[in-house]
């Protein structure tokens, strides 16, 4: 492949990529200008696949906020603090949190049932 035609191919591939990124049709460029370009069909498909697969995605809002707080205020958020712990400790912290919530729920549930189950005479105040 001569240097001139190699440069031409580079420009061709650049144009295809740029058009895809701008959301423009690439068909007008696919009319092969020479034999080397017509051998580039699979490369063009590859560019299209890369364009479709390598899509932007963002970090979660919670992560972004925690990291910001951690960086700027020097105070990690709850998730940040749990994450900074050793693995075993963070599992223990999550379990403890879960157990605490469960306990609160059970207390509320049984606490209210106990209150309603109390016999009337026990509630009555002796004169």
């Amino acid at each position: 492949m001569s240097t001139a035609s190699e440069a031409q191919l580079r420009n061709f591939l650049e144009s295809i990529t740029t058009r895809l990124q701008r959301g423009e049709a690439v068909d007008p460029l696919l009319e092969p200008a020479n034999e080397e370009q017509s051998n580039m069909e699979d490369i063009v498909e590859l560019i299209q696949s890369l364009h479709a697969s390598l899509t932007p995605m963002n970090p979660s809002q919670e992560y972004a906020e925690n990291l910001r707080a951690n960086l700027l205020d020097g105070r990690p958020g709850v998730a940040g603090r749990v994450r900074q712990m050793p693995a075993r400790l963070s599992v223990a912290a999550i379990l403890a949190l879960f157990a605490g919530c469960l306990l609160l729920m059970l207390r509320r549930l049984f606490g209210s049932e106990t209150a309603t189950d109390v016999p009337e005479e026990a509630v009555a105040t002796p004169l």
């Binding site: 995605m57 963002n58 970090p59 910001r68 960086l71 700027l72």
Partner: peptide, 20 residues
């Protein structure tokens, strides 16, 4: 640090995506 906060907002998504 507030100025760094603005830089953080600008570049967090880009750096995150790259690392991801």
């Amino acid at each position: 640090k507030s100025a760094f906060g603005e830089l953080y907002e600008r570049y967090l998504p880009k750096i995150y995506r790259y690392v991801y």
